[in-house]
């Protein structure tokens, strides 16, 4: 279980101030615009940066106090870092074998073969897709109980994305006690994987909902200006006006379905959440 309790980290004007909890057996998504604070949160969870205030604990123990053997339960895939590009996948097998007592070299080789990851080529000769798949494979090949995935599918084509996600799905299905924190810009990835979603905007958690709730209760309401004037705005989170009319984001889809049959109601998704919440926050701060 990962607990982030009132974590504060300041970089000049930017202030991250978040609390989140990822219980055992839960896949949690972390979403937000670029610069919202997702990577800083992930880095704090992995102990790569020191919080100015607050705490980050893994299974009840402060991250900075984890011993090397306790860190073996963590598997991490970072979006822009990994093993040296001059190493090969075969080199990595030998390194991981010495680092993790539970590293499964047979599984690693089997998956490399299935995912067409060459064992003898240097990583610098790999395609973006191969590198991404290898990063995820490294994280899941030592029976990790906690997975931290920062943009595991960024920059991948559809095929590589599906293969990477299948790898994760298979791991989740075989390790039901595993806690996973995943960030992604591709909402469909998170919708298909995550049990709950945290949205960060300007360094703060603005939404924490179960994925099912986001998909079932959040909606976009589209109407003309006249209908908007008569709309009960109690459950409207954000409003956007343009020359075609007004679009509102709500978290009470059913209320508007029942009371406003004349307006267009589209099911909400994670992209809408990011887009409309960000606008809402920008408008508020302006």
């Amino acid at each position: 279980m990962i607990t982030v309790d009132n974590l504060v980290k300041e970089y000049g004007d930017f202030r991250l101030d978040v609390s989140l909890e990822i219980p055992d057996g839960t896949v949690t998504g972390l979403i937000g615009k670029n610069g919202a604070g997702k990577s800083t949160t992930i880095k704090a969870i992995l102990g790569l940066i020191k919080p100015d205030k607050g705490s980050v604990t893994i299974n009840g123990k402060e991250v900075s106090a984890l011993t090397n053997s306790e860190k073996c339960i963590i598997g991490a895939a970072m979006s822009d870092s990994g093993f040296s590009m001059y190493l090969t996948a075969e080199d990595i097998i030998h390194i991981l074998r010495k680092m993790y007592p539970l590293f499964d070299a047979t599984f690693f080789r089997k998956k490399c073969s299935e995912l067409r990851i060459p064992l003898e080529k240097q990583l610098k000769e790999f395609s973006t897709g191969m590198r991404a798949k290898l990063r995820v494979l490294i994280a899941i090949s030592h029976k990790a109980e906690i997975l931290i995935m920062d943009e595991p599918t960024a920059g991948l084509d559809v095929e590589a994305r599906n293969e990477t996600l299948d790898l994760l799905r298979q791991y989740i299905s075989e390790n039901d006690k595993c806690s996973i924190l995943i960030t992604s810009h591709i909402s469909s990835d998170l919708e298909g994987l995550c049990d709950d979603i945290y949205m960060i905007s300007d360094g703060k958690v603005v939404v924490h909902e179960d994925t099912d709730v986001i998909l079932s209760k959040y909606a976009l309401l589209k109407m003309d200006n006249k209908a908007y004037d008569g709309l009960d705005k109690s459950y409207v989170i954000s409003t956007q006006k343009d020359r075609f009319g007004v679009t509102c984001l709500t978290n009470e889809r059913q209320f508007y379905v029942e009371n406003y049959p004349e307006i267009v109601i589209e099911n909400g998704n994670i992209d809408d959440l990011i887009l409309y919440y960000s606008q809402h926050n920008s408008a508020e701060s302006a």
Partner: peptide, 10 residues
Amino acid sequence: NGLEFLMTLP
């Protein structure tokens, strides 16, 4: 950023 990744290992 390899050092960043290395520090995520045990």
